[in-house]
Measured scan of single mutants.
Amino acid sequence: MQIFVKTLTGKTITLEVEPSDTIENVKAKIQDKEGIPPDQQRSIFAGKQLEDGRTLSDYNIQKESTLHLVLR
């Protein structure tokens, strides 16, 4: 499925993911596309910070959902 990741600069990245993917996985995909190390990424969805060990389905993130990426 496709999800979108919006950065603070307003750029939107499209990722191909599975509901079973962990947040860690997703951060690795963002690193592949953007070169941002996962330890600098904070992902926010529906106002909640997403934890690395959880999966997209844990957070009820579905296709075409938009995550927000904040850098630390």
Results as ranks from 00 to 15, higher is better:
Leu8Arg: 10
Tyr59Trp: 01
Leu67Glu: 00
Arg42Gln: 14
Leu50Pro: 02
Ile61Tyr: 00
Ile13Trp: 08
Asn60Glu: 07
Ile30Arg: 03
Phe45Ala: 04
Phe45Cys: 09
Leu8Cys: 14
Asp39Tyr: 12
Gln40Ser: 09
Ser57Asn: 10
Thr66Tyr: 07
Pro37Ala: 12
Pro19Ala: 09
Asn60Thr: 04
Arg42Trp: 15
Thr66Met: 08
Gln40Tyr: 09
Leu15Tyr: 02
Ser20Val: 04
Asp39Cys: 12
Thr66Gln: 05
Glu16Gln: 11
Phe45Arg: 03
Phe45Ile: 06
Val5Glu: 00
Lys6Ile: 14
Pro19Ile: 09
Thr14Gly: 04
Gln31Trp: 15
Arg54Gln: 09
Glu64His: 14
Ile44Lys: 03
Arg42Ile: 15
Thr55Tyr: 04
Glu34Lys: 04
Asp39Leu: 08
Glu51Phe: 06
Gly10Lys: 03
Asp58Asn: 03
Gln49Cys: 13
Gly53Phe: 11
Glu34Gln: 08
Leu71Gly: 09
Ile3Leu: 06
Pro19Asn: 04
Gly10Thr: 02
Thr14Gln: 09
Thr14Arg: 11
Lys6Asp: 03
Glu34Ser: 13
Gln62Phe: 08
Ile36Asp: 07
Arg42Phe: 15
Leu50Arg: 00
Phe4Pro: 00
Lys6Phe: 08
Thr55Asn: 03
Ser20Thr: 13
Val5Asp: 02
Pro19Cys: 08
Glu18Lys: 14
Phe4His: 07
Asp32Ile: 13
Leu15Gln: 01
Pro19Val: 06
Thr14Ile: 12
Met1Arg: 01
Val17Trp: 01
Lys29Gln: 08
Ala28Glu: 10
Val17Thr: 00
Glu51Asp: 10
Ile30Asn: 00
Arg72Cys: 10
Asn25Thr: 14
Val70Arg: 07
Ile44Ser: 06
Lys27Pro: 01
Leu15Gly: 00
Lys48Cys: 09
Glu16Ile: 13
Gln41Ala: 10
Gly10Tyr: 02
Val17Arg: 01
Leu15Met: 04
Gln31Ile: 07
Lys48Val: 14
Gln2Phe: 14
Lys27Glu: 02
Asp52Gly: 05
Asp21Ala: 06
Leu50Tyr: 02
Ile44Glu: 09
Ala46Thr: 04
Glu64Met: 11
Gln62Val: 13
Ser43Asn: 11
Asp32Phe: 11
Ala28Gly: 07
Gln41Pro: 08
Ser57Gly: 10
Val70Gly: 05
Gly35Pro: 05
Ser57Ile: 08
Leu71Asn: 07
Gly10Arg: 03
Leu15Asp: 00
Lys27Gly: 03
Asp39Val: 07
Thr55Trp: 02
Leu50Ser: 01
Gln62Trp: 05
Thr9Leu: 08
Met1Ala: 02
Gln62Ile: 11
Val26Gln: 00
Leu15Ile: 11
Lys33Asp: 07
Asp21Gln: 06
Ile3Met: 00
Glu64Leu: 12
Lys29Ala: 08
Val5Lys: 00
Asp39Phe: 10
Ile36Gln: 05
Ala28Gln: 13
Glu16Asn: 11
Gly35Asn: 07
Lys63Ser: 14
Thr12His: 05
Gln2Glu: 08
Phe45Trp: 14
Pro19Tyr: 07
Thr22Tyr: 05
Val5Asn: 01
Val17Tyr: 03
Leu56Ala: 01
Asp58His: 12
His68Thr: 12
Ile23Val: 09
Ser20Arg: 08
Ser20Leu: 08
Val17His: 00
Leu69Glu: 06
Lys11Ile: 10
Lys63Val: 07
Ile3Ser: 01
Asp32Ser: 10
His68Ala: 05
Asp58Ser: 14
Leu15Cys: 02
Lys27Tyr: 09
Glu64Pro: 01
Tyr59Asn: 01
Pro19Lys: 07
Asp52Met: 04
Phe45Pro: 01
Ile36Tyr: 13
Thr7Cys: 08
Gly10Leu: 02
Gly10Phe: 03
Arg54Cys: 11
Ala46Ser: 09
Gln62Thr: 13
His68Val: 13
Ser20Asp: 11
Ile23Thr: 02
Ala28Lys: 15
Ala28Phe: 12
Thr9Trp: 14
Gln2Cys: 11
Ala46Tyr: 15
Ser20Ile: 05
Ile61Met: 03
Glu24Phe: 14
Asp52Leu: 05
Ile61Asn: 03
Ile61Phe: 02
Thr55Ser: 08
Asp21Pro: 00
Pro19Ser: 09
Glu18Ser: 14
Leu8Gly: 10
Ser43His: 15
Tyr59Met: 03
Arg54His: 12
Gly35Ile: 03
Leu69Ser: 02
Val5Ser: 00
Leu56Glu: 02
Ala28Arg: 15
Ser57Cys: 03
Val70Lys: 07
Thr66Asn: 03
Met1Phe: 15
His68Arg: 08
Arg72Ile: 14
Pro37Thr: 08
Lys27His: 09
Ile44Phe: 15
Thr9Val: 07
Thr22Glu: 01
Asn60Tyr: 06
Gln2Leu: 14
Gln62Gly: 12
Gly53Gln: 10
Glu18Ile: 11
Phe4Asn: 03
Arg72Tyr: 13
Lys63Ile: 06
Glu51Pro: 01
Leu67Asn: 01
His68Phe: 14
Leu67Ile: 14
Glu16Leu: 13
Val70Ala: 08
Ser43Thr: 15
Thr9Pro: 03
Lys33Trp: 11
Leu67Cys: 01
Ser65Val: 02
Lys29Ser: 03
Val5Met: 03
